[in-house]
Nucleic acid binder design. Structure first.
Length: 596
DNA sequence: GTAGCGCGCGCC
DNA sequence: AAAGGGCGCGCGCTAC
């Protein structure tokens, strides 16, 4: 069952079950809405709404969670740019409504051919309702509203019907259905992660800062240890006034001191011998910590023992998430010790071991590569197969293949990988070739890469003119190769993001089931907000890694659910194809202890 | 005073 | 240790 939600008149919310009628079966005020959702949730509907980020926080604030949804904004971004719907969209029979946020103008032409997803996913995401015989009402013409909650119900219904039609007409409807469901589940999870917050121990964080930077400086001053290194660098460069935080200033001072660098970046500095370099690198390290994740970050981002970043599911081209504010996806390892479970609680920390090579093996249906990944250590498996001599070589070669390395050790090793795993190599090479000629490529479940920009196309066509100069041609070739590296990586990174979404979505439903029969002692009530009191819940997500905060006595059960969900994600994407997704999994009190 | 950009660097 | 993909953020700096 689906329930479509939209605005009806000022301040009223209409609820429609399109399998029954396009007329609302109920209209309520925004204040009444959460209670109505709570009551209807027992019927296990899929909530169809314009934008989860707008609708769901309000529900969570009232202590209401929903099981499933269809996020029309996120789904439109997928459906309207997928190469798998290109022919269905051809001719403009399914125009995007004006209220949707503008996306890239056009999806590219049919791109990389990637294997078809298994259709064995109906149970988990329960997509049986997706093809429901929904009638399409006349599309209401609306301007783009400031708040998508005010999109009229008729416009929401029309958009829903449009999306269902396009998915059905897609070349791979099963895959695209799964992708829409997984992306929407991600939107629910993103909002819940924010509501729950990551448990953050201010005292532990401050001790790390004091250990590295010295005592907290007074406002406007730099920490003592930064000043010490800065003084040392200035003396050793013979530049008493140089501002180390100014790239231009610093570069001049370095050159005057005889260090011939092109930039002030750490990796280039390290290639030179000069006594000032070591303290300069140390200064930069501390400066980064001080400006990005020190006391002012704590003041701004940690409230009541919780770090609450704003996650942006689907925020990047490849489908990885972004965050806005707080830098949640760039937390330096040395401050992660501040992530500490509440008393009586544990953290279940899990990350997928070598996710991307495994995703590639499945994507290409490369039996030999999947065989190397049988067992915990993919890179060890490659060495074991005699492809390269050392684990480090295996790692560099694999990364080189996925990122398009052409030079260095990585570039030299890639050909050996190509001989051992021709199918996998052919898949990424084809993705690169497609990108080089400006075509879009598509992930396993149907997310397509954006087309290159107008400048890129202009450079390519300039180079093909008779009067093109050598410089024109060089620029065009270099641009083509850059874009090819992007599309090469896109199919792998994007499909890995899909695996991770399925993993998290499956985990979330397992955790909800665990919570459903939870009778956790009252004394374990903690500070994480009403919805998540006393129940295991996700608190962090980082591309291939998750953290669940759970009452300690539930930790083993949660860990099993995490592993189950990973296995199921593999089956959802690859069916019976034998690619494994082992986890590094730990039950700890502090995030810092999970690496051990 | 602020918007926008390049740089450098944190994470995957 | 090294130059290949994806991001966000803070800084200095320039242009307005």
């Amino acid at each position: 069952m689906r329930i479509v939600v939209g605005a009806m008149g000022p301040g009223r919310v209409a609820l429609v079950d399109p399998s029954v009628s396009l007329e609302p079966f109920e209209t309520v005020t925004m204040q009444e809405f959460p209670a109505v959702v709570r009551a209807l949730e027992s019927r296990h509907p899929r909530w169809v709404w314009a934008d989860t980020r707008r609708w769901y926080p309000r529900l969570l604030a009232e202590g209401v969670r929903v099981d499933r949804c269809h996020d029309l904004v996120l789904a439109a971004a997928l459906i309207d740019h997928s190469t798998t719907t290109a022919s269905a969209r051809d001719g403009g029979a399914h125009p995007r409504p004006a209220w949707l946020p503008a996306g890239p103008a056009e999806a590219g032409q049919a791109g990389a051919v990637v294997p078809v997803a298994s259709a064995a996913h109906a149970a988990l995401f329960d997509l049986g309702d997706f093809d429901g015989e929904t009638q399409a009402p006349e599309a209401a013409v609306t301007d783009r509203p400031r708040d998508v909650r005010s999109v009229p119900i008729d416009a929401v219904l029309a958009e829903h019907a449009r999306q269902l039609a396009l998915v059905t007409a897609s070349e791979r409807p099963g895959a695209l259905r799964l992708l829409v469901a997984a992306e929407s589940a991600g939107a629910l999870i993103g909002a819940e992660l924010h509501a729950a917050g990551l448990p953050w121990h201010r005292g532990v964080h401050e001790r790390v800062l004091e250990g590295e930077l010295g005592p907290k400086p007074s406002p406007g001053r730099k920490p003592a240890r930064m000043e010490e290194f800065a003084a040392e660098v200035r003396a050793l460069l013979g530049a008493p006034a140089v501002n180390l935080d100014s790239q231009v200033d610093l570069l001049k001072a370095l050159r005057r001191a005889g260090i011939q660098v092109e930039s002030t970046s750490r990796w280039e500095l390290r290639e030179h011998e000069h006594p000032a370099i070591e303290p300069l690198v140390a200064y930069k390290k501390l400066a980064r910590l001080f400006s990005a994740n020190a006391w002012s970050w704590l003041d701004e981002w940690v409230v009541d023992g919780r770090f609450r970043p704003d996650y942006v599911p689907g925020g990047t081209a490849t489908g990885r998430w972004a965050t806005s504010g707080g830098g949640a996806l760039q937390l330096p390892k040395n401050v992660r010790s501040a992530v500490v479970a509440d008393p009586g609680w544990s953290l279940v920390v899990a990350d997928a071991a070598q996710l991307e090579p495994r995703v590639l093996a499945g994507l290409a249906r490369d039996e030999a590569m999947a065989e190397a990944g049988r067992g915990r250590d993919f890179y060890g498996g490659i060495v074991g197969a005699g492809v390269v001599e050392t684990r480090d070589q295996a790692k560099v070669a694999i990364l080189g293949a996925m990122y398009g390395a052409t030079t260095g050790e990585s570039g030299r090793l890639v050909p050996r990988l190509a001989r051992a795993y021709p199918s996998a190599m052919a898949l990424v090479d084809r993705a690169a070739a497609d990108g080089e000629r400006g075509a879009s490529v598509t992930t396993l479940l149907g997310r397509s890469s954006p087309p290159p920009g107008v400048e890129w196309r202009a450079a390519q066509s300039r180079a093909s003119q008779p009067e093109a100069t050598a410089a024109d041609e060089r620029r065009a070739r270099s641009g083509a190769r850059d874009w090819g590296r992007f599309t090469r990586n896109f199919v792998v990174q994007g499909t890995a993001a899909e695996w991770a979404l399925c993993w998290m979505a499956g985990l979330r439903s397992r955790l909800m089931a665990i919570a459903g029969d939870a009778a956790v002692p009252e004394q374990l009530a903690h500070r994480s907000g009403p919805v998540f009191e006393r129940i295991p819940h996700l608190v962090y997500y980082l591309h291939d890694e998750i953290i669940v905060h759970t009452p300690r006595e539930r930790a083993d059960e949660v860990a099993a659910a995490v592993a189950d969900a990973a296995n199921e994600a593999g089956r959802l994407l690859y069916g019976a194809f034998p690619v494994e997704f082992p986890l590094d999994l730990a039950i700890v009190e502090s995030y810092a202890l999970a690496d051990a």
